[in-house]
């Protein structure tokens, strides 16, 4: 029986199995994600103030420098083997910020290093982050085109 014959599957059994699904702890999960995600954002904001105050950065340069610091932090914690532990508890709180993106690039790079620096580390580095980049760019470009077209008609 293959996926093409799904009507033959035992729907009763699937319903029965689903009845065992433990209830997701929405409140607890959201609270943890909010706290950890919020903390990462606070670190970012702190860095922003410090860089502005101490080095007089501003605008795009300031935003870029803060991102670089956070990416370093995410990668560094991944290397120490700490980030996966944070992620196990914080969920989206540590996946969504840019540190999570850094983690998703650094972790396969570490893992596949054993298969060589070219076909292992470099090729597998974007195995998790690749889809985010592809669809991120696609959505960005589409939005830009829509914005441009709307601009031609004077809507925006």
């Amino acid at each position: 029986m293959t996926g093409k014959h799904k009507e033959n599957f035992n729907q009763n059994y699937l319903n029965y199995v689903n009845s065992f699904d433990p209830p997701t702890k929405h409140f607890k999960n959201c609270f943890r994600a909010f706290m950890v995600g919020g903390l990462i954002c606070c670190i970012g904001q702190f860095l922003r103030y410090m860089l502005e105050r101490l080095f007089g950065l501003s605008g795009d340069v300031l935003a870029g420098t803060v991102s670089i610091f956070l990416i370093f932090l995410g990668t560094f914690l991944t290397g120490l083997g700490v980030y996966d532990r944070i992620g196990r508890n914080a969920g989206a709180g540590s996946i969504v910020p840019i540190t999570g993106f850094a983690n998703s690039v650094a972790s396969p790079a570490m893992e596949f290093k054993t298969e060589g620096f070219i076909y292992g580390l470099a090729a597998k580095m974007f195995i998790v982050a690749g889809p985010i980049i592809v669809y991120g760019v696609l959505v960005g470009a589409t939005t830009g085109i829509v914005y441009y077209i709307l601009g031609l008609f004077g809507v925006v």
Binding site: T78, D84, G87, R88, G100, N103, S107, E111, V128
Partner: peptide
């Protein structure tokens, strides 16, 4: 884990099942 799921150091959550 590496063959079937995610890299070890990736910060994901494991479902209760």
């Amino acid at each position: 884990e590496r063959q079937y799921r995610y890299p070890l150091e990736q910060g994901t959550t494991r479902p209760p099942q």
